[in-house]
Design a binder for these strands. Structure first.
Length: 565
RNA sequence: GCGCCCGUAGCUCAGGCGGAUAGAGCAACUGCCUUCUAAGCAGUGGGUCACAGGUUCAAGUCCUGUCGGGCGCGCCA
């Protein structure tokens, strides 16, 4: 697949090289310059659609000033048979190029032909990618970090698909290990407190204190009875966990479904233990001489593989650590299931875990440094009424994902959590998210879409429906507003690839905002339903391209694109 | 103490590879609806890019140091 933008840039490269060649033949340049130069889009559109820094890059080897080199090149440039209609030089020695009308027409015809697929890229080459996100602890409700992680992970997965990767969305359920034991203990104490009054033990400080634990214990007691008291502590805890854990997990699934997140796989940590994969891993690591025993525990020689210090894999009590299970889990992703790349979205407080995880995978020959990408998501500061909001006014507890989705529209949450780079701290304004106004960026984009739909609808009603236009008609779109709008439409594929390469779906959200702005400006400046039938048709054609792209990008994020508002 | 991330307008943030006059939105002020959605557009004001050095034709961007903020350094996950 080749894109018009790439084609245009390739034309420039060729034209500049040919011009340099001519300058040598004419004796103006002493030698043919070899240095690399770049074609870029100037920040200021007054400097053309593309610029080249060849004159600056070649100043040294040609022993001439950048400006005189630029002048020479500009004189020798031949832009026949290219998308460009003119070139000039400016500033320190930039060559600036201006696209001709055929290019703009070609972009719109391309969008029309590809429809919702416009902007797709084969950048990923069908690479198999696993995106693991949220993976909240099933012992309690999901929090605000999970809200950001959910929106980020789901949209990143969507962007990667759009950029030509084969993506699987995954949730890792930590249903084994210490935190489940703690969950069991907490449930047990709350259960006994229901029946034994003052004789029941107090809840230890490091146990789960939340009211959700009490509620689960009571729900069990209501559905069953006090008969667990007769059982051994272990049997009682087992019964309580067997009851409560599936309840919690299905609650998470419900909430995430409301959040429009559908996973391809829910992967249970317990499977790794039950299937013997953790044991196999430990055997393999032992055979590779990656482990040793000390103080009754099995240690991994992390310090020999990029880690700061060695790490325990199996505790003295014989129970494997989370780290051991996690290595087995990632080995399963990269080796057993043969994903080319595993992307994990973690809270930034886990950053100490990244290097040792990658190091361990490297030591297993799985090239962890390359194939495991960890996105360290910074925490969210919820703001309400200009102040940091920690507690839900309704429940009095920390704000959960469920609370959030009851308070604000899913569209707003999914969009606004993807407005910032993942690895930077962000503020989330609850008041803004519920506002149905221009200040709310998601409404701004939806309004642009609805507006485009409305224009299409109105003109169809007055007997001027959308029709196919030819390049000559589309070449009538020459105002600055039309040109800028089309130029931004042309940038979608590159933006999709950049978002995928940088693991940053926020680029697409910002692209939508910018596209909306340019459309609103166009709308204010250019009347679609005008006297000139051809111009009117061409403008309507442009409206439909904008509508199509906004629709495909909002839908990509699973945000609704209303036809009227 | 060691390690990671961050510091850009009053506020929230853009500025992948060093490039031309550092950009948006919000907030403040001023205009624009007899015609396609005013949930919009146009305009005004607002900056020692934390600070100090260095690298070069060119530094918000790269390097070093300082200050300020966040986080991590468990037989927790």
């Amino acid at each position: 697949m080749s894109y018009l933008v790439d084609a245009a840039q390739a034309q420039l490269r060729a034209a500049v090289s040919t011009a340099a060649q001519k300058a040598v033949e004419a004796g103006v340049f002493p030698t043919l310059p070899q240095g690399e130069f770049r074609i870029e889009v100037p920040q200021n559109r007054g400097f053309g659609d593309f610029s080249a820094n060849a004159a600056m890059a070649w100043a040294k080897e040609l022993h001439q000033s950048p400006r005189s080199i630029a002048q020479t090149l500009a004189e020798k440039l031949d832009l026949c048979d290219t998308y460009f209609e003119k070139a000039d030089f400016a500033g320190a020695g930039f060559l600036n190029f201006y696209l001709g009308a055929e290019y703009y027409a070609a972009i719109l015809l391309d969008i029309r032909a590809k429809g919702e697929d416009y902007g797709r890229s084969d950048w990923g080459g069908g690479r198999k990618v696993n995106v693991e996100f949220v993976s909240a602890n099933p012992t309690g409700p999901m929090h605000m970090g999970n809200a950001r992680g959910g929106a980020l992970g789901d949209c990143l997965a969507a962007v990667l698909e759009r950029a030509g990767c084969k993506v699987s969305r995954e949730f890792y359920v930590n249903d084994a290990g210490n935190q489940i034991a703690k969950f069991a203990l907490s449930l047990d104490v709350r259960y006994r407190q229901l029946f034994e009054g003052d004789n029941a033990p107090a809840l230890p400080e490091d146990a789960y204190q939340g009211t959700d634990i009490t509620a689960l214990a009571k729900a069990y007691a209501d559905e069953h009875d006090s008969s667990l008291l007769a059982l051994s502590e272990e049997a009682r805890r087992q019964a309580l966990v067997a009851y409560a854990l599936p309840k919690n997990i299905s609650a998470m699934q419900n909430t995430l479904t409301k959040y429009r997140i559908i996973y391809d796989r829910w992967f249970f940590e317990s499977e790794l233990h039950n299937s013997g994969q953790v044991k196999d891993l430990l055997t393999q690591m032992d055979e590779l001489d990656l482990t040793y025993e000390r103080d009754g525990a099995v240690w991994y020689k992390a310090s020999e593989h990029g880690g700061e210090k060695d790490e325990v894999l199996v505790r003295a009590n014989g129970v494997p650590t989370y780290f051991a299970a996690d290595i087995a889990y990632h080995r399963d992703k990269l080796l057993t299931r043969a994903f080319d790349e595993a992307i994990d979205i973690w809270g930034a407080d886990h950053h100490g875990h990244v290097a040792r995880m990658q190091g361990a995978l490297d030591a297993l020959g799985l090239d962890g440094a390359k194939r495991l990408k960890v996105i360290l998501m910074q925490l969210v500061r919820l703001m309400s009424g200009g102040e940091v909001a920690r507690m839900s006014k309704r429940t009095g507890n920390a704000i959960t994902l469920t609370d959030l989705l009851e308070d604000i529209p899913v569209d707003a949450a999914r969009f606004m959590f993807n407005l910032r780079e993942p690895e930077t701290q962000m503020e989330f304004d609850l008041d803004l998210a519920v506002q149905q106004s221009s200040q709310n960026p998601v409404y701004y984009c939806q309004y642009a879409h609805a507006r485009a739909c409305s224009v299409l609808r109105k003109l169809a009603e007055t007997g001027k429906p959308l029709r196919q236009c030819n390049a000559d008609e589309l070449a009538l779109l020459t105002t600055p507003e039309e040109r800028e709008l089309i130029a931004h439409l042309a940038a979608l594929t590159g933006e999709t690839e950049a978002a995928a390469r940088l693991y940053d779906p926020a680029k697409i959200a910002r692209y939508c905002i910018e596209l909306s702005t340019l459309y609103h400006k166009f709308y204010a400046a250019c009347r679609v339903n005008c006297e000139d039938e051809k111009l009117s048709a061409a403008r309507l054609f442009l409206c439909d391209c904008v509508r199509s792209v906004l629709h495909s990008q909002l839908t990509l994020f699973k945000i609704t694109a209303p036809e009227e508002m």
